[in-house]
């Protein structure tokens, strides 16, 4: 389960760049239609487009220049599934060849029986995953029919204890932090196991109720303060006060 964090971070397309704390200072809030930069040298990335000599924002969020590429990171909004995202979802139905999983997105997830980590007999599917069960899964395909999930990686599978809660999905990169630094800090300070899904759902299980409460409050603190710089220091400070 612990490896999931690293995977989510390495594979998530919105994971933070190593120089997050430095580049964040260069970020500024842009609104749709606003010119971010002018000049032929720049390339419009996610959330940006070129009109003549200008690169314009086509999303509300933080504009970021990484070399020549200019992109806009959204601050709020629904989760949009992408291939290789690790997500936390809930089984809502069982069909003849797999499980329908609510991943809190515009399309429901589907976990084919072949994508379970071991052989499952078709007559015993509900013994492996029943309706209402919560799982950590990886998205291996997004297409017009829906989102296909897999459990065939380390750290994926059914969640047996603890609890899950949601934050705004766009805040996930800050919660994970540079090379997982933020989430590691929270794990170390609370002694909890934590899995952060790219869909904003987070699983926590700890040694005591108080540890679990503290871990959740720490994560919510970051989710609320995702815009500010020097978050790691702020988090350290928070732990000295809480």
């Amino acid at each position: 389960m612990k490896n999931t964090i690293n995977e989510a971070q390495e594979l998530g397309d919105s994971a933070e760049s190593p120089s997050i704390e430095e580049t964040v200072k260069k970020r500024r809030v842009v609104i749709p239609g606003e010119v971010i930069v002018s000049g032929e040298d720049y390339l419009p990335g996610d959330g940006a487009r070129r009109v003549g000599a200008d690169v314009l924002a086509c999303k509300f969020g933080l504009a970021e220049e990484a070399g020549r590429v200019v992109k806009v990171l959204a601050l709020t909004g629904a989760f949009v599934p992408r291939r290789n995202n690790v997500v936390i979802g809930r089984v809502t139905n069982i069909t003849f060849n797999g499980w329908v999983v609510d991943i809190d997105a515009a399309q429901s997830g589907f976990l084919p029986i072949d994508e379970s980590p071991r052989f499952i007999n078709k007559n015993e599917m509900d013994q492996f995953l029943a309706i209402g069960d919560v799982i950590v899964a990886k998205i291996w395909s997004v297409n017009v029919r829906g989102v296909d999930l897999s459990l065939k990686s380390k750290g994926l599978g059914k969640i047996e204890g603890g609890f899950i809660f949601r934050v705004i999905p766009n805040r996930v990169p800050r919660i994970i932090g540079k090379e997982g630094s933020m989430i590691t800090l929270i794990k170390d300070k609370t002694g909890c196991d934590i899995t952060v899904g790219q869909n904003g759902w987070i699983w926590i299980q700890g040694p005591t109720t108080d540890a679990e409460i503290k871990a959740r409050r720490a994560i919510e603190f970051i989710a609320d303060k995702a815009y500010i710089t020097g978050l790691t220091e702020k988090m350290e400070e928070w732990f000295t006060q809480n």
């Binding site: 809190d104 204890g161 609890f163 949601r166 109720t209 409460i213």
Partner: peptide
Amino acid sequence: MSSMETSNLTGRTFRKMF
């Protein structure tokens, strides 16, 4: 926002906490 209702998993944690 969330379309997922509180799961039984989380419900059990609430039960213990309360």
